[in-house]
């Protein structure tokens, strides 16, 4: 190298056929991932092209999401690569060749928000009324749904687990509150019938088999059990053990949410159903504090879900997708 310096520097040439390259500015977090010995797979994602909102592109690591922003530069930015070139002399010399220009660079900014809205929109509601499920699926796998959501798989998965979404009959679904309560009742009854103590360690498989007779989607039963597992049992092993706080709050919230749109719910009736839905050992754990964020008291003697207002607003808004029309149908049926 020193000899080239002596000979008057590094020859610089410009390629005739410029190639297409983009420069992506790397935040420290991403740089650390790329420098790691086994870098994870990254991906560029955007919403499904059909959606009415302008599609923006994000870059996803397995667990986080960055928004891409294109930045113009007034300077000429050349990307160069070493080559061997012979121009004036016959002997090819190491040369730096510009083979791309970039008029814009890409900046990355951590994306805020969560995939809750996208998942709610993309997953049809699995709603059981009078033991019948009337819903058309989206015909997509979980991976297929995640591909259309501009968030990382890790973030999508957390929300997926939280809303107890599941795959069934070639589609993905999210359970309605009514569905959750019915499946939960089946779980609770099956546990009582088979002598399985939900508050102690039990084989998930045993309980699944006991619930099976009710013909609820197995994936949904599993999703509920996983959601309610204690921290120590939540890593998908063969064992389960339900967490008291999680379960009591889940049952209370689902019971309230299932009554959205119906007439006033007497607080005493609600507490009574809540107790009846819980395993015997947790009967006395019902305390409105357990569902603090989920309820409001419209009158001294009645209770309702806080979601009532939001849902009413959402129902009033015109729905774009045809997939959800059946949902409006249910809404109308319930109001009659």
């Amino acid at each position: 190298m020193a000899t080239q310096q002596d000979a008057g520097g590094v020859p610089f040439s410009i390629a005739h056929d410029m190639r297409q390259f983009r420069l992506l500015e790397l935040p420290a977090e991403l740089l650390a991932l790329l420098d790691a010995p086994d870098p994870p797979l990254l991906s560029m994602k955007s919403q499904a092209p059909s959606s009415a909102k302008p599609a923006y592109v994000v870059l996803c690591t397995p667990t986080s999401t960055f928004q891409l922003r294109q930045v113009q530069t007034s300077n000429t930015v050349l990307i160069t690569q070493p080559t061997l070139e012979a121009h004036d002399s016959d002997i090819p010399v190491p040369t730096t060749r510009a083979m791309a220009t970039c008029t814009t660079t890409l900046e990355l900014h951590p994306a805020d928000g969560t995939p809750i809205e996208s998942l709610t929109e993309l997953l049809p509601l699995y709603h059981i009324v009078d033991d019948e499920v009337d819903a058309s699926g989206n015909g997509k796998s979980k991976d297929g749904v995640f591909r259309d959501i501009p968030f990382s798989d890790g973030q999508c998965n957390r929300v997926w687990q939280d809303m107890m979404a599941f795959e069934f009959a070639g589609s993905c679904w999210r359970p309605s509150a009514n569905t959750l309560i019915q499946v939960w009742r089946s779980i609770n009854q099956a546990a009582v019938a088979d002598g399985i103590k939900l508050d102690k360690q039990f084989l998930t498989e045993d309980l699944m088999r006991a619930v099976d007779e009710d013909a609820h989607p197995a994936d949904l039963v599993l999703a509920i059990l996983m959601r309610l597992n204690t921290e120590t049992e939540s890593n998908n092993g063969p064992w389960s053990c339900l967490d008291c706080t999680k379960t009591v709050s889940f049952v209370g919230t689902a019971l309230l949410d299932a009554k959205i749109g119906l007439s006033d719910y007497a607080t005493t009736d609600f507490i009574e159903s809540w107790k009846d839905c819980l395993p015997e050992v947790w009967r006395n754990e019902t305390n409105l504090k357990a569902i603090d964020a989920a309820y409001s008291l419209p009158s001294p003697s009645t209770i309702r879900s806080k979601k009532s207002l939001d849902t009413a607003k959402a129902d009033a808004a015109p729905k774009a997708g045809s997939q959800r029309k059946w949902h409006e149908k249910f809404g109308r049926a319930r109001k009659k």
């Binding site: 160069t80 070493p82 080559t83």
Partner: peptide, 23 residues
């Protein structure tokens, strides 16, 4: 990769470098 004539600090695994200029 062909020999990279740039100072070693500027050398990257695939040899790419960025040159920015006005005009």
């Amino acid at each position: 990769a062909p020999e990279n004539p740039l100072p070693s600090l500027l050398q990257t695994p695939s040899g790419f470098a960025i040159v920015e200029l006005q005009g």
